[in-house]
Design a binder for these strands. Structure first.
Lengths: 337, 337
DNA sequence: GCTAGATGTACTCAAATGAGCGGTACCGGG
DNA sequence: CCCGGTACCGCTCATTTGAGTACATCTAGC
């Protein structure tokens, strides 16, 4: 009925930067509105540019250019959001920065240790459930954070579960502390290569003897088959790890001398991520650095920013390729790198 | 170095609707993060799906499916925004709902009449500057809102400017009230077909005589050439229009009888948008409904929600095809339609 | 008034993309 | 146990899209 084009041989300059509210586009309000209408059709209604061009009486190139301009000028905003508690932005940055196969950062509003453990554990459980396949063999290290995961684990495919380290009785929580691996094995329903043993023994001979014990030998025999491992993170400083706190003053001195910073699955690491062989290593019931390195997927579950230096060591070591943690932890890691 | 795929024959179900924070996707956190990373590459970095597929070791179909899924599940949000004071969303809705060629809705936080007049006037000026071309002929009606526009008009191409109606001296603002058309003509710099005449005369004979007057006849001679007109909006009720308030009680009665609701550029309209021929019509110095209908572009500038019924009449009339107003006005129009 | 550069427009061709299809693994119910 | 329903994967084919290019038009500066 009417001529209906905004385009044509017209001055499309817009005068009104007079109040400074022209954000980026130098186009007038009418083009702005048309751009918006076109953007809506394209991005929200999913119509093709050719369609839109016909509808508005333009050619498809004009439509494409208008869309380009609209995006440049910020009229169209595309956000990759937070659907829930996972901070996908942080997760992706963590993953890319440290070359991980996967990273999941949980954004708990609260940084209370209890909340963190629960939330991080829950998401670690989700990640494990997601990545585990029927042909995998699952390795589980003893750690508080892994315990938190074990408690909320859904049903898994019936994979074998292999205990990777001995345990330590936790002072507070009595019962389940020893049963982390058993809990996981129950969730899976597959064969369980588990044993009762402390992670550290008074001397190498005792440890060696214990490794001969049938359950333990059987479990260690399965270690090379492990395809997915879930491990905790210990900082080698007072209060930084249950293992460290269970060691003697002499052990502490040795670790200090060797420059040990972190402990992952019974493996001691320097700040630069080098695995260290200590006298202590022979007294530990756990897989070795080489076993760990041979596993295709090693997922670290860690919370509490005190452990940051340990996390850095672990990330540098190349022994791990997955990380589940909380937002403050991830942010600190990224800030300092 | 490591196997690095989240895909494969794995259960990708996610268990944790347990706390209800799984928004829409039933995928686990790891896929979530990967989807987000892919979405970022695609939408924000503008890479192609083939590229992304290579980078992540997937095929392009998988990438496409993940993106689709991510969009459906709300991970990717696309918003068409507010760059400045123009509410593009409302503008587009107004435009589409009433089949207009253009609509611009200004979102002034404030609904003070003074603010509205200034802001709406400013954006009307922008719109006019944007759509006017060097080959246009510009018609200007006398109206307070058009006056507000005239005051902030930037330099226009040197087009002819044609006065479409007589004027009324405003009670308050002394000087510029008569000079609206002259202001516009000055901004354009082209030939000005202007005259000094009241919009309404005591009798048809006086109006007829005045129309013979050379300036006025010259201006009316140009009316068929007009390609773009800017007009105001009057509600035919006390206080709804300067024209109405200038009329006699007899005139009011006539308009009431004829069911006149609105006045646009000297043309009286019923609530359904029918132009009405009254005795009064012969006493008005203004273009007729047919002249108005013949103009390819007629832009209404209106503010103040009291005039809503008049706006509805004008929109139904088919005489106009552009609208500049403010957010509360536009919302009310859309709500009631 | 004229030329150089900027801007907008139209077109071609190759790359990117989406729709739809068949094959396959998985799941829950007979 | 088999069987239909479902979801996923990888593919082909037709369409859509973007990059490059050439041409028209406008603007600014001399």
């Amino acid at each position: 009925m009417r001529a209906s084009s905004v385009s044509g041989k017209m001055g499309t300059e817009c005068s009104s930067e007079r109040k400074g509210f022209r954000v980026a586009s130098r186009l007038g309000p009418a083009s702005l509105v048309q751009s918006a209408a076109i953007a809506r059709r394209y991005y929200l209604d999913g119509r093709s540019k050719v369609d839109i061009a016909e509808e508005f009486g333009l050619n498809r190139f004009k439509v494409a250019r208008m869309l380009d301009h609209a995006r440049e000028s910020g009229l169209i905003r595309i956000e990759i959001g937070h659907p829930g508690l996972v901070d996908v932005e942080l997760s992706a940055r963590l993953q890319e920065t440290f070359g991980l196969t996967r990273a999941v950062v949980v954004d708990t509003g609260d940084d209370n240790a209890e909340t963190l453990r629960t939330q991080v554990g829950q998401f670690a459980a989700d990640v494990l459930a997601e990545v585990i396949g029927p042909d995998d063999v699952l390795g589980i290290a003893w750690a508080r954070s892994v315990g938190a995961m074990a408690k909320t684990l859904p049903r898994l495919p019936g994979v074998p579960v292999v205990q990777l380290t001995g345990a330590i009785a936790l002072p507070g929580s009595g019962d389940s502390s020893f049963d982390i691996v058993r809990d996981v094995a129950r969730a899976a329903g597959g064969p369980a290569y588990v044993y009762y043993a402390p992670i550290v023994l008074p001397n190498a001979a005792a440890a060696s003897a214990l490794r001969q014990q049938s359950d333990i030998a059987r479990a260690f025999g399965q270690v090379p088959q492990v395809t997915k491992a879930v491990v905790g993170l210990g900082l080698c400083a007072p209060g930084g790890s249950t293992l460290y706190d269970a060691l003697s003053e002499r052990d502490h001195a040795e670790l200090r001398e060797l420059g040990v910073c972190a402990e992952v699955c019974g493996v001691f690491l320097t700040a630069t991520g080098e695995p260290v062989r200590a006298e202590l290593t022979d007294r530990v019931i756990a897989v070795g650095a080489e076993d760990l390195r041979a596993m295709p997927d090693v997922l670290v579950v860690a919370y509490g920013t005190a452990k940051l230096p340990a996390a850095r060591a672990a990330l540098r070591s190349g022994l791990i390729n997955g990380f589940v943690t909380h937002a403050t932890f991830a942010r600190a890691l990224l800030d300092e790198s």
